[in-house]
Every structure is written in structure tokens, then in C-alpha cells.
Amino acid sequence: MQRRLSDIFIKKTALLMLQISTQDHYHLLLENLEESTSSLSQNDESFYNSIKPELNKEIREPHASTIERIMAYSKNHKKDI
């Protein structure tokens, strides 16, 4: 009985250690994966560059009156002490 419990304990401990080590390994792998893949492929980058002029045609400016209202709000809004 004691030997059986001991076997079960050893197996569970081994499983837990394996799980922890696998998780650590997985976590490290994921971190490295995020670092190495945090950019577009050459093809994607090339296509993106080709459409940038088109995308830039959509650039807009807010109206001057909106900026004025924001500044007026700021001047009228006192700093909290």
C-alpha cells in the first residue's frame, strides 16, 4: 500500500515537473517567437509599400474650429488640486 502510494506520488510529481518545465519551455518559445515574427514578410512589406500612396490620399485634418474649441475647453478647465 505504502509502495503504491509512493509510486503514485512519484508519478504525479514527475508529471507536475514535466508540466512546469514544458510550460516554461513553451513560454520561452513563445517569447522568442514573438520577437522573431514581429514584422511583415518581404512580400507583404513590398505590397504595403505599393499601396501607401493610395492610403495617404485619405489623410485628413480636423477643422480649425474644432481645435479652437478644444483649446477653449482647456483654458476654461481648471487644474484639480
Binding site: E58, R60, E61, P62, H77
Partner: peptide, 30 residues
């Protein structure tokens, strides 16, 4: 302002709405 306003505009596709949201954004900032 250009980056912020354009980002909002491209999401909502309405200049007047974008102006409102831009203003509300800076009110929260302030």
C-alpha cells in the same frame, strides 16, 4: 492631430462624426 483625426475618420467614414469624436478624445485627454 493629423494622425489622430485620420485614424478616427478612417474608422467612422464621416467627417462630422470624426470631428466630434476627435473633440471628445481631447476633452478626455485634458
Amino acid at each position: 492631430k493629423t494622425k489622430i483625426y485620420t485614424s478616427i475618420y478612417m474608422l467612422v467614414k464621416d467627417e462630422f462624426l470624426a470631428e466630434d469624436i476627435f473633440q471628445d478624445t481631447f476633452i478626455k485627454v485634458i
